[in-house]
C-alpha cells in the first residue's frame, strides 16, 4: 500500500496549487495592502495601522454594517417566516395539501434569476411617478399617491430586504421540506394517535426536529447576507443612495477600491468585514454546539 500513497499528493496537488495561488496568496496580499496607502498605481507606501485606525472611527463603515444587518434582518425574517409557514402547511398530514411540486417550482423560480437582472428590474419597477408598481398600487386603490420607494432610506432598505426574501423564500422552503421528509412519518402518526392537536404537533414534533436545518439556513443566509452587493449596487446609483441607506459593506469596499482608488483602505475594510463574519460565525457555531451536546 505504501507505494500507492504518493498518489494522494498527486491527486490533491492541482487543487492546492490553484488554492494557494488564487485564494491564499491574494488573502495575504490584501493583508499586506491593508497596511499601505496603495492607490492601484505606483508603489504601495507602508503606513502602519493608519487604515485600521481610520476604520475604527469611520462612520461610513459603521453605517455600512448597520445597513447590511438591517437589510439582512428583513430578508431573513420574511424568508424564513414564509418558508416555515409553507413547510408546516405542506407537511400537515391531516390537510394533505396537493400541488407541492408545482408550488415548490414556482416559489423557487426567482432564486434562479441573475441578481443583477433582478436589481435592474426592480430599479425601474419601483420608479416614482413612472414606475409600474406604483401604477398598479394606485389602480388597485392601495395607495393614493405614488411612493418614491427608492428615495427614502426606510422604504429603500425594506425594498431591498423584501426583494431578497422574495428571491430566497422558495429556496428555504425546499430545504425545510427536505428536512421534514427526513423526519420519519412515524413521529407524526404517533402524535396523531396520541391525540395531539395541530399546535402540539407543531411545537413538540415539527419545530424541534427542524431546528438543526433552520440553523443551517441561518448560517448560510448570514454569511451570504453579510456579502450583499449586487442588489444595492445596481438598484440605485451604486454609491448607496438614498442617503447612504443602501451602502453595504461589500459595496463600500468596492467603491473605496475601484471607484476612488483607495486600495489600501479597501483592504482594511475587507479585513473589517472578515472580523465581523468570524465573530458572527463563532456565535452561531457556539449555539449550535451547545444544542448538539444537549441532544447527545
Amino acid at each position: 500500500m505504501k507505494r500507492l500513497d504518493k498518489f494522494g499528493y498527486i491527486f490533491i496537488a492541482p487543487f492546492f496549487l490553484v488554492f494557494i495561488t488564487f485564494t491564499i496568496y491574494p488573502i495575504l496580499l490584501t493583508f499586506y495592502y491593508s497596511f499601505t496607502s496603495y492607490s492601484g498605481r505606483g508603489e504601495a507606501e507602508f503606513i502602519g495601522l493608519a487604515n485600521y485606525a481610520r476604520l475604527l472611527t469611520d462612520s461610513y463603515f459603521y453605517q455600512a454594517f448597520y445597513n447590511t444587518m438591517y437589510i439582512w434582518g428583513i430578508n431573513f425574517f420574511f424568508q424564513l417566516g414564509i418558508a416555515l409557514l409553507l413547510a408546516i402547511l405542506f407537511s400537515d398530514i391531516r390537510l394533505k395539501m396537493k400541488g407541492l411540486g408545482f408550488f415548490r417550482a414556482v416559489f423557487y423560480l426567482p432564486n434562479l434569476i441573475t441578481m443583477a437582472s433582478v436589481a435592474l428590474l426592480f430599479g425601474i419597477l419601483l420608479g416614482w411617478h413612472h414606475g409600474t408598481i406604483n401604477h398598479l398600487l394606485l389602480d388597485l386603490g392601495i395607495i393614493s399617491q405614488p411612493i418614491n420607494w427608492l428615495n427614502d432610506p426606510t422604504t429603500a432598505r425594506w425594498s431591498v430586504g423584501l426583494i431578497g426574501a422574495w428571491m430566497w423564500f422558495g429556496h428555504t422552503f425546499i430545504i425545510l421540506m427536505a428536512g421534514i421528509s427526513g423526519i420519519s412519518k412515524d413521529y407524526f402518526e404517533a402524535a396523531l394517535i396520541d391525540g395531539a392537536n395541530r399546535w402540539q404537533t407543531l411545537t413538540r414534533v415539527t419545530l424541534p426536529l427542524l431546528k438543526p436545518i433552520m440553523l443551517y439556513v441561518l448560517i448560510t443566509s448570514l454569511i451570504g447576507g453579510l456579502q450583499i452587493f449586487d442588489l444595492p449596487m445596481l438598484i440605485t446609483d451604486g454609491m448607496g443612495a438614498p442617503q447612504g441607506s443602501l451602502n453595504t459593506m461589500v459595496l463600500y469596499l468596492y467603491n473605496q477600491a475601484f471607484r476612488f482608488d483607495n486600495y489600501g483602505y479597501a483592504a482594511a475594510v475587507a479585513y473589517g468585514l472578515f472580523m465581523i463574519t468570524v465573530l458572527f460565525s463563532f456565535i452561531t457555531f457556539k449555539s449550535m454546539y451547545r444544542k448538539n451536546v444537549k441532544e447527545g
Binding site: 496580499l29 490584501t30 479585513y271 468585514l273
Partner: peptide
C-alpha cells in the same frame, strides 16, 4: 468570505 482577498 469570498471578498476578503478581492483586492489582492
Amino acid at each position: 468570505p469570498g471578498q476578503l482577498g478581492l483586492i489582492g
